[in-house]
Write a protein that binds this DNA or RNA. Structure first.
Lengths: 352, 352
DNA sequence: CTGAAAGCGCTAACAA
DNA sequence: TTGTTAGCGCTTTCAG
């Protein structure tokens, strides 16, 4: 265990006894108390059918007095739907996914649909389990950010056969589902032309620090970059801060004095920036740095990060539309595939 | 809608038709195919009782061929437990909560318990809904980070009466539940002595930029600070980056030339740092800055942030223990209340 | 407008 | 070791 996390002096204590668990009240209790049948109670509570006003009052009163709240398992089992959707993210520590999760949640807040978030912890088996558990609980829809372009496919396919499934941000292309994401090639092309313009007047080596192309987004971004700059050095790792820091640190140690450092995620860029500062070098004087995503943490960078921003608001709105459509329209429909164009934001980490 | 988010050129398209939804297979289908009763199928799948090996094989084969997976709603309804817990966080964009969510998820990954995360979006009504929906779905436990020290109490109480409930990080003190958090007073006292030592040799005004004391953590931190420095200026807002930036920006505009800026969260400190840089001033030369939490984003700060680190690993382990204990021990037990001591980490944003 | 009753899918008691 | 059956809590026909 990490030594810095030890805290021998933590206060510890036990408080009073647990109150006895309240017996769960069911629709039968309410019915009995109101002097009506359980059917009437159900009708009042869902107002699914007209009920004599007097009965309605009595039911409402009884439910209130007993502190009744419906068992959603019973309801879901009967109805075959759960009024909920599942969102499986690779990782909640990545602020881009955290923001996506927050925004998806918020987008559904006004509807009757609960959004549950499950972190796959960047692990295929955990991802499989997350999807299976959501399906087993009969969610009405699934929004997935697949960990791996290829190896997540079986789980995604399983989902797609059972329920409205939307792949978000990342795509396992072998499975037909809805897809909402960003036009990564366009975004990286924007970065590339920025870089090209920049080295024109101020020549320096170009390096790419990004994630291994095992997710579709990393794949597309890397691909576009490599086509634009075939001679550039590529350093590949994972979508997190410490990879960016370590990779950049090593490049500097190896003697890289100046460069344009292109990354494929803001978190990586933030790591790069930290490494540059740790080595006492300056941005953009010695190293120019660009990010990708433009969400949340971008604002934290010092200096402010040149990046490409994904229109998250539009993306989540599109998701709501699809889910709504699946509920209303219901039947056989076409798959929605939308790639929103991100927009280049030039800031001080790599000025024009 | 934010103009920067428009992307008129986004690609849009519809793909092939949805494959017909596979009919959900039940335990009956498996039983029929294997030529046994549904009870035997259940017993094999849960191995809850010995089953003749030959039958076991046939059941497994049938389940596999049919792609059967159990309906967890039926199981949960029958068993009265769902093998899941709910985690309600105020906000997923706050990296501290996101990290907490990630760590809690990871801590339960090795158990049979699924962790579902619900964002309350810093809204009391959404928080109430999150708790009610988890209870309605009969989660076996609830981990809550209450939005508000006082106004979250009714929802927390509701939870505590139905299910093992653990308040995490923030406490609604009027409700008796388990509590896992950090010793905020101790942590802020650490900061205070650091600040005191610092101004001794290098006198400058002390200001506090932190959240309104509506959550217990903000309350305790502010309280401790205010007792230590009764004359210090207090600027109060919310636990987010933009509040920190705006507050600091205004202080600088008002003419604050130098200061020790104490915050009660790293996210706020990051905002403060951004504002300082935006005004062309330097840290720690002009302004010293301290944070609180020491999780995730701390590393992003430039210069590295002096802060107080919460032992998140220990905290999540304690949560697992409580939940496990509640399942095994079951009956009436005392409440666990633990406040882990955070540890001061002195870095360049306010060196010793 | 209302109640009786069926049944969603599952597990567990009970009987064989 | 196995099958039959009751029933978890709910909604929704179907009769009245």
């Amino acid at each position: 265990m990490d030594d810095t996390e030890r805290s021998p002096g933590d206060q510890e204590g036990l408080q009073s006894q647990r109150e006895d668990a309240a017996p769960t009240t069911t629709i039968h209790d309410v019915a009995a108390r109101a002097g009506v049948s359980i059917a009437t109670v159900s009708r009042v509570l869902n107002d699914s059918r007209p009920v004599r006003p007097e009965h309605r009052m009595r039911v409402l009163a009884a439910a209130d007095e007993l502190g009744y709240s419906a068992n959603l398992l019973g309801r879901a089992l009967r109805q075959g739907r759960s009024h909920s959707i599942g969102l499986v993210v690779p990782d909640l520590e990545n602020p881009f996914f955290a923001t996506l999760a927050q925004d998806v949640s918020r987008a559904f807040a006004s509807s009757q649909i609960d959004v549950y978030v499950y972190s796959a912890d960047n692990d295929l088996e955990t991802e499989r389990r997350a999807i299976a558990s959501f399906l087993g609980r009969r969610v009405d829809g699934l929004v997935l950010i697949p960990c791996d372009e290829v190896r997540s496919a079986p789980s995604v396919r399983l989902a797609s056969r059972a329920v409205v499934t939307i792949q978000l941000d990342r795509l396992a292309p072998s499975v037909r589902t809805h897809f909402i994401g960003c036009d990564n090639r366009y975004g990286m092309a924007q970065i590339a032309s920025h870089v090209r313009a920049v080295v024109e007047v101020d020549p320096r080596p170009i390096v790419f620090i990004g994630a291994h192309p095992t997710s579709s987004s990393a794949h597309e971004r890397l691909d576009t970059f490599a086509k634009a700059f075939p001679a550039a050095r590529l350093v590949l790792g994972s979508f997190d801060f410490s990879f960016g820091r370590d990779a950049m640190s090593q490049l500097i140690d190896e003697g890289l004095k100046a460069a344009v450092v292109v990354t494929d995620a803001d978190v990586i860029a933030l790591g790069v920036i930290a490494a540059v500062h740790a080595h006492g070098r300056a941005i953009p004087r010695d190293y120019r740095v660009t990010g990708f995503d433009g969400v949340g943490v971008t604002f934290l960078a010092q200096p402010p990060l040149t990046t490409v921003r994904q229109p998250v608001g539009q993306m989540t709105a599109a998701i709501v539309d699809i889910v709504r459509g699946a509920f209303d329209g219901g039947g056989t429909r076409d798959y929605v595939v939308r790639r929103f164009r991100p927009s280049l934001i030039v800031r001080e980490s790599s000025p024009a």
